[in-house]
Amino acid sequence: MIKPKYQTNKGKIFHGNSIELLSNQLKEELKGKVNLIITSPPFPLNNKKQYGNEKGEEYKEWFIKLAPIFSDLLTDDGSLVIEIGNAWEPERPVQSLLHLECLLGMVKHPEANLRLIQEFICYNPSKLPSPAQWVTVNRLRTVDSYTHVWWIAKDDFPKADNSKVLRPYSKSMMQLLKRQSYNSGKRPSEHKISEEGFLKDNGGSIAHNFFEMEALDEKRDVRLPHSVLSFSNTNSNDYFLKTCRTKGISPHPARMSGGLVNFFIQFLTEEGDLLLDPFAGSNTTGYCAEKLNRKWVSFEVKEDYINQAIIRLSNPNLKPPSKHL
């Protein structure tokens, strides 16, 4: 049996091809036990990146084959969350349908019994202009500034609780709660607003499926759930970046947002549940799982990125200390 490259009291990371390992050596150990698979697989880019990625039809075939493997790993009420960017046709200013074909292929796979529960959009205005040829060189297209996040499951009612990921109330809602009155009655849309429907303080408003990682409008507060902001607005990740700089290491270029991972962990799992990331990179998923008291298993094919994951998990804020194997 393959041994993990590194582990903590809550989780372990394996070095190798996750799909091969999960189809063979680790299949029975994890089958039906994973509460949440959350990952950002290599995007279907036209140019090969250092973190590895397939292209075109090869990518689609590879992606769709993941469906029955992931389905077997999940508990009956478990979820699969995948972040993926847009693709473009090679040497053409035309957006590819590849990512949509991948989604359809996955949820329609006859051996997987999966369905799309909800799509989320993660907007990041700090992304570099892409595709560069058609945005900054020829000036024919606008900046591709968001990624898709697909929430997929085996059942129509996977474990989920949106009360765990509430957004802060708006200023107007806070004022309404304070004065305990508002204009009720029938709206032009024919919706009937009850007299007391908005008077109860639930601790925050229900989260949206649009993540504004930076403010669209500087004059307006970004009302992301605390689970997102708690990662983004603290120094919890500075240890990793500072250590990488000190050691002269270039951090993984496509790290998944820790705030995004936090959100779905708290939304879709409970303490003690098992998370899995088959394409871990520097292991943001494992780090967030440690902070939120979940068990985790990660896989990474490149040893350099496992070394970065070890740096991340060596953060002194994570207790008890981790160990090499």
Results as ranks from 00 to 15, higher is better:
245 R>D: 15
213 M>P: 05
176 L>Q: 13
172 S>M: 06
266 Q>C: 07
220 R>T: 14
271 E>I: 05
197 G>W: 07
270 E>D: 15
277 D>Q: 02
247 K>D: 07
225 P>K: 07
246 T>I: 01
227 S>L: 06
205 S>K: 09
277 D>L: 00
278 P>M: 06
278 P>L: 01
283 N>E: 11
237 N>T: 13
273 D>F: 02
221 D>F: 04
241 L>Q: 08
246 T>R: 13
186 K>Q: 12
283 N>V: 00
205 S>L: 08
193 I>Q: 11
273 D>H: 09
270 E>Q: 14
156 D>Y: 04
210 F>E: 10
288 C>N: 07
199 L>A: 01
231 F>M: 11
279 F>H: 14
230 S>W: 06
232 S>P: 00
163 S>C: 07
286 G>Q: 04
192 K>M: 06
243 T>G: 02
178 K>S: 14
273 D>A: 01
200 K>N: 10
184 S>Q: 08
176 L>P: 14
212 E>W: 11
220 R>D: 10
215 A>Y: 04
210 F>R: 05
196 E>S: 12
269 T>D: 10
167 R>K: 14
300 E>N: 07
259 G>A: 02
261 V>M: 10
193 I>C: 05
229 L>Q: 11
185 G>R: 04
217 D>S: 05
209 N>G: 05
160 A>H: 15
256 M>V: 04
